[in-house]
Nucleic acid binder design. Structure first.
Lengths: 108, 108
DNA sequence: GTAGGTGTTCGACGTCAATCGAACATTTCG
DNA sequence: CGAAATGTTCGATTGACGTCGAACACCTAC
């Protein structure tokens, strides 16, 4: 039974360490996803709609890391997987951290 | 002429990217140094006075990374090299980030 | 049913950073 | 002077992570 079938995708992590958060935010591709996501309404962006310099497989990996760090939430809609930035939830655990990422100039 | 002789150690970096900051804070040994340093008055802690699970060479490397990220400043005092946490300077560039690290439970 | 679009998983590869140990430089102290 | 203490630097090793490509699963059309 696949992860997708079991629908585990939707379960947010119970606890996220600062180490996990910093690791997740340490990759520029992942920060690009977060900034892009912050500029769109919730549940309007599928994984494939992000302009990223990596292939499908790598892209999927990055979304998994963001999920595990509690930074995003995903929901299946037909054949696509829609995303939502878990901003208030993450801010509660690590106030100010996500703000720094979102304030970072794109492509930088 | 060695770096030490030229005294380049004291020069803080001109500009630090978020990438550099996250990289520097991404290592648990370096966060231990920062927390320990925050608990001591400025210029009272030599590099060797920190309880770290690494050898001399690695320790020196970590201090160099923290220096390059603008997180600490160093000054020679005899044969020892004293440290100071550049808290206000770093907070100005990345407000809230260092606070999260210093609030992190030790050894975690 | 067949085809196309979307996303995941897996193995393999390359690269980068942390680590160690040894050699070296500098200062201090006997 | 010689010896100990403090840090740095360098080469080599190792492990982790980002990446790709192919295979697979699922949904939605036609």
């Amino acid at each position: 039974m696949s992860v997708r079938t079991r629908n585990l995708t939707h379960t947010p992590p119970a606890e996220v360490s600062l180490q996990d958060a910093l690791d997740a935010l340490g990759d520029p591709v992942r920060r690009t996803i977060l900034r892009d996501l912050a500029g769109s309404p919730d549940w309007t962006r599928a994984c494939g709609t992000f302009d990223l310099p990596v292939t499908k497989g790598t892209r999927s990996h990055h979304f998994a890391v963001l999920r595990a760090a509690g930074l995003i939430e995903q929901r299946d809609e037909g054949s696509r997987r829609l995303n939502r930035l878990r901003r208030p939830e993450f801010d509660e655990h690590f106030p100010g951290l996500l703000d720094l990422v979102l304030a970072e100039p794109a492509a930088g």
